[in-house]
């Protein structure tokens, strides 16, 4: 009897314990990851916050009193919003094309769509100048003779921003579109819906969360774009200087407090975007 009591209750129990037990290696790996993220991300970003508020709210107050800075921030928001709208419409159409149709050169197109992520934004800027530049660009002089200036003007900034953020909506929507499949659309068709009705009532609601992630990511990326915008905008104070360019300018002019304040605003929008995305993801996963 005593033997039976001492014996392990179930043969499967030790295995279960072994699987759940955390060895020293697990803790070491965790420590490494946390330290890495802290040194690379959390600490530097938090320093931006502390620098901004070193003198209380003074830095932010000065910021909003400077009309040029306010203009820069407004320009950034306008460019980011317009670029996001363009990329969303374009992105959803291209995703439909990639997932729902077969055509020669599809793989090339798909690869091409990732190019903006791979190319340095400054290259993007230079390339856009080559095409749309007012002097010597391919289209630039023609467009300028119609009274439409692209480079060194808002359209150029929007173009550059849209370019660098191009794949974000597509990469979110394509896998979801593939997963949703075509049966719901076919069912809608057999029930009498035409192409447009099927798209609005069935396809779009099916991919709406993916579009929302894509839009938020695009917006975050667009607000922070620097390199490509720097080349195409000309960085004219009060006209084509965006918020990121203003950060650089302030920093180079030894106005560190101002630089940190704008940087703080940009970073908080990005953090807000990430929070929104993670909340939406959690909610979509709960469905």
């Amino acid at each position: 009897m005593i033997d039976t009591i001492v014996a392990p209750p179930e043969p499967s129990a030790p295995t279960r314990q072994r699987r759940a037990r955390k060895g020293p290696v697990t803790y070491l790996v965790r420590l490494l990851v946390v330290a890495y993220l802290f040194l690379l991300v959390a600490w530097p970003v938090s320093l931006v916050v502390t620098h901004t508020f070193e003198n209380g709210l003074d830095a932010l107050r000065t910021l909003f009193e400077d009309p040029d800075i306010v203009h820069a921030m407004r320009l950034t928001v306008v460019a980011a919003v317009v670029a996001t709208v363009i990329n969303t419409v374009f992105g959803v159409s291209v995703s439909l094309l990639l997932v729902r149709t077969e055509f020669p050169g599809k793989r090339v197109l798909s690869a091409l769509l990732d190019l903006p992520l791979a190319i340095s934004p400054i290259v993007v800027g230079l390339a856009l100048v080559l095409v749309y530049g007012g002097r010597g660009g391919w289209f630039g002089p023609t467009l300028e003779s119609w009274g439409l200036q692209i480079i060194f003007s808002t359209p150029g900034i929007i173009l550059a921003t849209a370019f660098v953020a191009l794949p974000l909506v597509i990469r979110e929507v394509v896998p979801v579109l593939g997963e949703v499949g075509i049966e719901q659309e076919q069912a809608a068709q057999s029930l009498g819906a035409n192409g447009w009705q099927t798209f609005w009532r069935i396809t779009l609601p099916g991919i709406r969360w993916a579009i929302v992630y894509g839009v938020v990511l695009t917006l975050a990326r667009s607000l922070g774009e620097f390199g490509a915008v720097k080349v195409v905008s000309g960085n004219i104070l009060g006209e084509t200087r965006t918020a990121t360019l203003a950060v650089e300018e302030s920093y180079l002019n030894f106005n560190q407090e101002g630089a940190y304040a704008i940087a703080f605003l940009l970073a908080s929008v990005s953090v807000a975007c990430i929070i929104v995305v993670s909340i939406l993801r959690a909610r979509a996963a709960g469905h």
Partner: peptide, 20 residues
């Protein structure tokens, strides 16, 4: 005729329910 003009009811193996 496209499917929407045929006035047929179609039921799929995997239901094709409108999930939303």
């Amino acid at each position: 005729l496209p499917p929407q003009k045929r006035n047929v009811g179609f039921v799929f193996q995997h239901y094709a329910a409108f999930k939303h």
